[in-house]
Simulated assay, not measured.
Amino acid sequence: MKVAVVVVVVMVVVVVVVEGARQDRKKGRSNKADKKEVSVPKEFSEWDKFNKLFLHHISKKPSKLKEEDIKPHLYTLLKTLEFLTVVDKYLDENLASVRSEEEARRVFTLLDLFSAQEPHRLRYLKQMRDALTALFMTDPEAAKHTIPSHFILDAFDRHIQARQRRTQAVLRRVMVGNPDNLNTLVHYRPGRYLALDSVLRLHNIPSPFLEVNETQWYHIKQASSPHLTLSIDLLTWRMILVNHTFSPTVFRFERETKSSLQERYEYVLRSAVLSPSAFLSFPCHQHRLCFSYKDPVTVEVVTLQRGEVAFIGKQTDGVFFLRDATGSKNSAFPSVSVPSVTPWYPGKDAHWILTPLKS
């Protein structure tokens, strides 16, 4: 009887051990499967490869380099380990095709990684210049007689200045509003990209979001047609565009709360001819923008070229633009362009111009 009990206990233990091993194998397969599912975007893995090489390269103090090592070391730093060209190429291929927050964040994350690397690069390049200066002072023969040392240093300075100009151009390309990057700006959030925000301030690149005076009244006109201005159908409160010979509706931006992490304000659009309790709302009448007494649409105003602006709707996470609306034959208002919302940039017709009302 005791032998039988022992056999049963042993069998139970074996079953438990085997089952445990089976579960462990399942977990192992699950972990492997999870690892396969987690894929690093190509542009980030490429940055990681560059950055490892870059950090290894600048771990050597320039003052410790031998005379024959300075030139190839500098060439590698300026040419081989030049990540700005990778960023530029990535923007060429992706900036205008951004259609979602995830795609926009990839652009900003890549710029943030590059911006985090930049101070180290510039600081090390300054150390390289100091090392060259010290070398020429202690050993004038280090520079060939046909190429005086100050020519080499001048060329070095020109290269650094050119690099700074290229960096500014890349950042302005993304952060200064234009038809190719407006949908990217929709998803920009100051405070989320610390290194990028820092380098923008360093290069004095202004915020892409227009600072609007909430006490000023404005006419809002379509940029592609100076003869149209925004007005309101007082029967339906639908926003429409009418010829400037009609009396235009005057609007004002009322400032909303500002987050401590944000460097821009959000606004609610109000009308001069409607009650102070009325504000821009969405949707209304087949997804046309209307004024209402509830559910306000908070807007942000993005600067574009030549003083033109575009509205970004917070709730809809899209860009307000103008589209053709077909009016019925019996309608008092014929077919006109009315505001709608799209998650991408539709072209020049999306531009609105704010014209301050003269006091």
Rank of each mutant, 00 (worst) to 15 (best):
F54Y: 10
C284F: 12
R238C: 07
M137P: 00
S231P: 01
L122W: 05
A134G: 07
F291Y: 07
T236C: 08
D69G: 04
V301Q: 00
R106Y: 07
F156A: 03
A278Y: 13
I312C: 04
L357T: 12
V16F: 14
I70W: 11
D295L: 11
K2R: 13
F50R: 00
P334V: 02
S259Y: 12
V14M: 11
V40Q: 09
R173G: 05
L81T: 02
Q305S: 14
L185N: 01
D92M: 08
S275C: 07
V16Y: 14
V9M: 14
V212Q: 00
K26W: 14
Y293A: 10
I312F: 08
G327N: 11
A143W: 03
P190V: 01
S45E: 10
K294I: 10
V302P: 00
P41R: 06
L171Q: 03
R172T: 08
K2I: 14
E37G: 05
R105H: 15
E214W: 04
V98W: 03
F246T: 09
L280S: 02
H150M: 04
E67K: 15
V15C: 15
T146S: 14
T316A: 12
A350K: 05
H187F: 09
T326N: 09
P356M: 03
L65G: 01
F321S: 05
E67Q: 15
F136E: 01
V3W: 15
V174Q: 02
Q23P: 06
E300F: 07
L196W: 01
D69T: 05
L135G: 01
L65Y: 09
V107Y: 03
A134T: 11
K144L: 11
V273H: 10
L135W: 03
L269F: 09
W237I: 03
